[in-house]
Structures are given as structure tokens and as C-alpha cells.
Design a binder for these strands. Structure first.
Lengths: 224, 224
DNA sequence: AGGTGTGAACACTTTCACAGCA
DNA sequence: TGCTGTGAAAGTGTTCACACCT
């Protein structure tokens, strides 16, 4: 009872979480190559941040390194998994069976990381009943029931902006408190729910801005 | 020569650009309803920020409002269009004709905003020659030629991570300096090129983190 | 020597508060 | 009076620098 522990009494910057997620990915690559230990300097080089940043980010959660040596790759991966909640699998419902929904549904990257689709919903009667892999499309009217039945942890929301408010309420009632939103609209987020927005048009507009303004060059991206 | 001008001698926070993009969208909705003037307070309410934030953001580019009144909706839209580079259309090449590429290609939201696909590229010979709308898929080996021929302004990059480095070099040589990257890897961005990353798995991991950590609730999203 | 962990300095963003114009 | 535009204050995130451990 005095090994390294994952403590968390501070508030964690949004940006730090994104970086941790990225470190995790890089560490997995290192593990595959058989690297046993890695220094913050080397991780920095590979992730495009600074060594200090990495040490700070990790120190938000505990002391995982050995002075003079660096971080043991396998241990650190395991710690990051625990921190990020990747040491379990997540049950995800896809709401919106359109083009984007379809692409997301078929994208293998999600399942690889432990995010599994357990239901597909749409409000279009013509789509309801259709087969998507092992699943068949159900009606959004039944959202609450489906969430309960499938023990849904998260929703991927790929519907038109106009459909969002009603669905938000339904999800809230159903006890869903994590949503990945592709609708180009600002959600009214109830207490206790976490929402992340992915808005590809806005990303293109940021590029358009950069090209138009001449300045503001170089990396400006984020991890949407 | 003393009307409102769009000045830009400062450096613009990344976050401000994203918000401007969002204000623009809201203003268009207001215009449709026939609103002539809007105050920073009202815009704040609709966009989920604060009035001060909005005034600061806009003041980075000029003085578009009238004291005691607010901002004239139509004028402000026009100004934002100019600032964001949305007063013209952009020629976009899609590199990577897989599932995600396909969904992006068929997504109407891009064209509505003036982003037009003018070429589709892939490295898979089986896909080359296939018809995508009016376009036919071309080989990534010809990237430089295609960029020149089609006067490509931006690339949407939807390829596996392993293909990225070579393509980055080709794009750089071709003079492309805006890339929307869907590959889950950190690009090495040459001077003068702007890259924005969209990484949906990382977004899910952020949700996973939020659910796991109990704390850190409420909106945490961004505009991907 | 080598590299972590961390308080303190710094830089950047957001919020406040108010002068000034319609 | 109402609301913008903006310096100054507060807050947040990043970088520095060094004590400390191996």
C-alpha cells in the first residue's frame, strides 16, 4: 500500500486529457517495438510537445517514472488506460442512421479501442427495421427503453440540428451522460452530462480563415 | 475611406476563430428570421458564451457595432464572411477514398459553405478509375499534377496513418497549405502549412475519461 | 550523469468594469 | 438609457529551472 497510485484531487485541463490520449497511443507503438522504458524527452519528440509538458500532464495523476531512467512503458500504458477508462469496454448507441452515422458505424477504429455499438436509432420509419451488421435500426421514440435494455454508456449523435433538442431531453431522461455530437449546433447540456462536439465544417472554415489571413500559419489543429 | 475596416495586426487565438465561425452560423439564422440588429448579450445567449467574449472576439477585427444599439446582422455576417474567407469558394481534394472519405464526399454541408470537392485520390488501384459523382478516382502518385490541374486549395486527408508521411511531402511539394486530417497520427507540419486534426476516437476517449473520473462534468466539447 | 517531479515565472485567455458614443 | 469597445484584473495553462532521487 505504498506503490504508485492514481490520485485525482485537482481539476484536469481539457487539453491534458487529449494529450494523455495521444501519449497512450504512442506508448502502445513503443511497446510493440519492445521498448521497456521511455524518457519524457523521447515521448516529447514523438508527440510534438515538450518534455516538461509531459511530466506535468502525468504528474496530475501520480508519479509513474523513475528518476534517472524514465517511464516504464508497460506500466505507464496500464496507468493511462485506467485513467482514461480504457481498461473496460463501452456500450455505445448510434443515434442517426444517415451517411455520417453509417461511416462511423463501419469504422473499425472504435471497436479496437473498446467502443462497441450496441444499438442504432433513427426517426425515419423507412430506416427502422433495416439491418446494420448484427443490429437492426430502432425508432428514436424508444430511446429510453433501448438505453436501459442495452445498458448504453454513450451516444454518438449524428442527426440534423433540428432533431437535437428533443433527443437531448430523451437522453437526459434515459440517464445517458456522455454524448459525441456531430450536429452543427450548440447543445444545451444538462448538469452531469458530458458532450463533445465534432463539427467538420467549422474545421474547414478554420482552414479557410488561415488561408485568407496569410498569417496564423503552422499547426493549429486539435483532436476532433 | 473611414468606414469600418477589417484590421488584423494582432495574433488571433485559435479559440476565437472557432467562435467566430459559430457566431456566423447563428447570425445567418437570425437573418433568416428577419432580425436586423442583435446585441452581444443576445448573441451570447444563443452561442453559449458571454457578451464580453463576443465583443472581444469581434473587436480583434474591427468595430462592427453601434453603441446603444448592437450589431447590424447583415453587415456583421458580411464582415465575418470576409474574415473567415467564406466570401469565395474553395477547391478541395479528397485524399483517401475509403469509408470516411465517402461519407465526407457525400456530406452536403461542405458544398453549402462553399467547399467543393474537385478531385478524389486513392492509392488503391482497384479504386482508381471508379466514379464518384462527377469525378473519377485518381491515383495518389499523381497528386502534384492533380493539385496543379484543379487548382486545389485544401486537402481532406482520410487515409491510414501509415500513408501520411509520404502524402505530406507530396502535398507540400504541390503547394497545398491547408489540410484537414482524419488520420490518427501527429503530422509533421512544414512551415506555411496549416493542419487541423479530427480524431474521433480521441473524442470518445475524452468521454470515457469523463465518465470514469466522475468529476469533470458538464460541457467539455469543442468544435471539430 | 541522467531524468523525474514540482513550485515559481511566464504567457495566454477570459472576465470585469467602465468610459464613451448613439 | 443602452450597448459597444477596451484597458486592467483575474484566471488558466505552459514553460522554466532546479531540488532530488537512482
Amino acid at each position: 500500500m505504498c506503490g504508485v497510485r492514481t490520485v485525482l484531487p485537482k481539476k484536469i485541463p481539457e487539453s491534458a486529457v487529449r494529450r494523455l490520449s495521444f501519449y497512450h497511443r504512442i506508448l502502445e507503438e513503443l511497446e510493440e517495438v519492445g521498448t521497456g522504458t521511455v524518457s519524457s524527452g523521447e515521448l516529447a519528440e514523438r508527440s510534438g510537445t515538450t518534455a516538461a509538458q509531459i511530466r506535468k500532464d502525468l504528474s496530475l495523476f501520480g508519479s509513474f517514472g523513475k528518476r534517472g531512467l524514465g517511464y516504464p512503458v508497460q506500466d505507464l500504458i496500464q496507468h493511462l488506460r485506467t485513467i482514461l477508462g480504457l481498461d473496460r469496454s463501452w456500450r455505445v448507441a448510434l443515434v442517426g442512421a444517415g451517411r455520417i452515422g453509417s461511416a462511423l458505424f463501419e469504422y473499425r477504429g472504435f471497436a479496437e479501442r473498446g467502443f462497441h455499438f450496441v444499438a442504432v436509432l433513427d426517426s425515419d420509419d423507412a430506416k427502422v427495421g433495416g439491418g446494420w451488421g448484427d443490429l437492426s435500426v430502432e425508432h428514436t421514440d424508444d430511446l429510453e427503453r433501448i438505453v436501459a435494455r442495452e445498458r448504453v454508456d454513450m451516444v454518438v449523435l449524428a442527426v440534423p440540428a433540428s432533431a437535437v433538442p428533443d433527443l437531448m431531453e430523451a437522453m437526459h431522461n434515459a440517464g445517458v451522460n456522455a454524448v459525441l455530437n456531430f450536429a452543427p449546433t450548440r447543445l444545451d447540456v444538462p448538469e452531469g452530462m458530458t458532450v463533445r462536439d465534432v463539427n467538420m465544417v467549422m474545421e474547414l472554415e478554420a482552414l479557410s480563415f488561415a488561408l485568407s489571413q496569410g498569417g496564423n500559419r503552422g499547426r493549429s489543429g486539435e483532436g476532433g
